[in-house]
């Protein structure tokens, strides 16, 4: 049996009167890409953000490699090896690509930022990934939507994550770029034996890339499907039921 890397138990979260998540539990295994689908407002992003330490849950527990973790800030989660691609990128348009990729994790020598080293590391990573980013010194403001999304993805891949949380990571990418990104992610997850959670609305891509599919509705997980046993029509019915 494959080992678990992340376990979520009984997570609930309300925003004022809105109950975004009620009693959500899931297990993510090493080397697994788990997909979460659901209608708009089902609670997918909220769940990922709780795992990433952005929100703290009202109740419930999170276990990373079987040890309970309580993140006080997203930095705690990142230090523990959890990296997230946010649905709305979370980039700073006035910072350049290098600054955005290393934001919160800058390399310093003494008191001063070591941009030379950061650029060197980033260039090497870009060679591996074959991402089409025009220049790492360009301000993100001047990049296209798809290129911005690549920067957001790049940021999560820089620091050897244990768990990758991808909230609609390819929504702005061309068909070719999406395939490239998802193949890379899939391969990374398999070779490094890390875990990935993948939220998307493209059901064909979900079936193609994920190892397992969870369906969410109104803040609950209501079904689990294996990609080879289901099809987009059934998934839509489950989401909408």
């Amino acid at each position: 049996m494959v080992e678990e890397i992340l376990r979520v138990e009984g997570i609930s979260k309300s925003f004022g009167a809105i109950k975004a998540l009620s009693d959500v539990s899931l297990i993510l295994h090493k080397g697994e890409l788990l997909a979460i689908i659901g209608d708009n407002g089902a609670g997918k992003s909220t769940l990922l953000k709780i795992i990433a330490g952005v929100y703290s849950p009202d109740s419930g527990k999170i276990f990373l490699e079987k040890k309970e973790v309580k993140f006080k800030s997203p930095m705690d989660a990142r230090k523990a090896g959890i990296e997230m691609v946010f649905q709305d990128f979370m980039l700073c348009p006035d910072l350049n690509v290098t600054q955005n990729v290393f934001l919160g994790r800058e390399i310093v020598s003494g008191e001063f930022l070591n941009y030379k080293l950061m650029k060197k590391i980033l260039k090497e990573k870009l060679k591996d990934l074959k991402f089409d980013i025009p220049s790492i010194e360009k301000k993100v403001r001047f990049l296209s939507g798809g290129q911005q999304q690549m920067v957001a993805i790049l940021r999560t891949l820089m620091f050897d994550p244990k768990v990758l949380l991808l909230d609609e990571p390819t929504a702005n990418l061309s068909a070719g770029a999406s395939e490239q990104v998802m193949n890379f992610v899939k391969q990374l997850i398999k070779t490094k034996m890390i875990g990935g959670i993948y939220v998307a609305h493209d059901l064909n891509a979900i079936i193609r890339y994920s190892d397992r599919i969870l369906v969410m509705r109104s803040g609950r997980i209501i079904a689990e499907k294996m990609p080879e046993e289901t099809n987009p029509v059934e998934l839509v019915r489950l989401m909408r039921l």
Binding site: K49, A52, G53, V54, S73, P74, M75, D76, A77, R78, F86, F89, M90, L91, C92, P93, D94, L95, Q99, L103, G104, E106, L113
Partner: peptide, 20 residues
């Protein structure tokens, strides 16, 4: 210094990445 500019550029992003 970088965080000053980053905060002005996208405060939410900076917070979500764990910068105070």
């Amino acid at each position: 210094g970088l965080y000053v500019r980053a905060t002005g550029s996208n405060e939410l992003a900076v917070r979500n990445l764990g910068v105070d």
